[in-house]
């Protein structure tokens, strides 16, 4: 068993989308490093820059569960939650290292409260992975990454633009609602972890919202025909 696990870890490590995550991480670090050159406006911009960096890295994490071979691995003895947890566990140290680097890139006097901003980052990363997990569970696509990335980005912009102020999430540091907003971020984090855990479970039977249209229509027709013939046969 330990030998199997070691092999499993090695294989999972090789199949992780390190290229995409690395690109996203590089872009995020670039954004975080911008706080060093923005001069006096940096104080106002450092929080926005860190959030943009978090968003960039989260867009990379969205590709974590992309697996071109998922239809062939559905039958292996290792269940999906284990494979899923393994992928997440492998990427967590990288994420932690990246986040530390991003925080260290921001000058100490411009840095927002570390615990709170880490909570925001954690919630964003958890949301990204949970979105990917739900996409894997609810669809048959092998690479849900781009789709979830588009969704994550669109929803991030929508939340920034039109989220009601009563439940504000993106607040500046000096705002009175900072503490309340981070309670909400904790709720978001919990919700994302729960949804991600539920999404990790292998469904009992395959179903999808978006099967091949021809097949689905034919299936419905077949059902209807069957129903009609069943009625006809009734006395």
């Amino acid at each position: 068993m330990p030998r199997l696990s070691r092999e499993l870890i090695f294989t999972a490590c090789r199949t992780l989308p390190w290229g995409v995550v690395g690109t996203a991480g590089g872009a995020g670090l670039l954004l975080a490093a911008l706080t060093r050159i923005t001069g006096e406006t940096g104080e106002r911009l450092s929080l926005h820059l860190l959030r943009a960096a978090v968003l960039a890295f989260a867009l990379g994490l969205v590709f974590l569960l992309d697996d071109p071979a998922r239809h062939t691995t559905a039958t292996v003895p290792t269940p999906r939650p284990v494979r899923f947890t393994l992928r997440v566990a492998l990427v967590v140290p990288a994420t932690a290292a990246w986040w530390t680097a991003a925080l260290l890139l921001v000058p100490p006097d411009l840095r927002p409260p570390v615990a709170d901003i880490t909570l925001e980052a954690g919630a964003a990363f958890a949301l990204a992975v949970a979105g990917a997990a739900v996409a894997v569970r609810c669809t048959e696509v092998t690479r849900p990454g781009p789709r979830v990335a588009a969704g994550l980005l669109t929803s991030a912009v929508l939340v920034m633009v039109g989220w009601p102020g009563r439940w504000a999430l993106f607040v500046p540091v000096q705002d009175d609602r900072w503490a309340a907003a981070h309670d909400r971020w904790a709720v978001v984090l919990t919700g994302a972890v729960l949804v991600g855990a539920l999404g990790a479970v292998e469904p009992l039977r395959r179903w999808s919202w978006r099967g091949a249209p021809g097949r689905r229509a034919a299936g419905r027709r077949g059902l209807r025909r069957a129903g009609r013939s069943a009625r006809v046969q009734e006395p």
Binding site: L31, L45, H48, L55, A56, F63, V157
Partner: peptide, 23 residues
């Protein structure tokens, strides 16, 4: 030819827009 390119570009543009309109 990578799916991550467009979302990352958007993040950069969002930030640039914020920077130029605000700063």
């Amino acid at each position: 030819r990578s799916a991550i390119a467009a979302p990352l570009t958007v993040v950069f543009f969002l930030f640039l827009f914020l920077f130029f309109t605000g700063g």
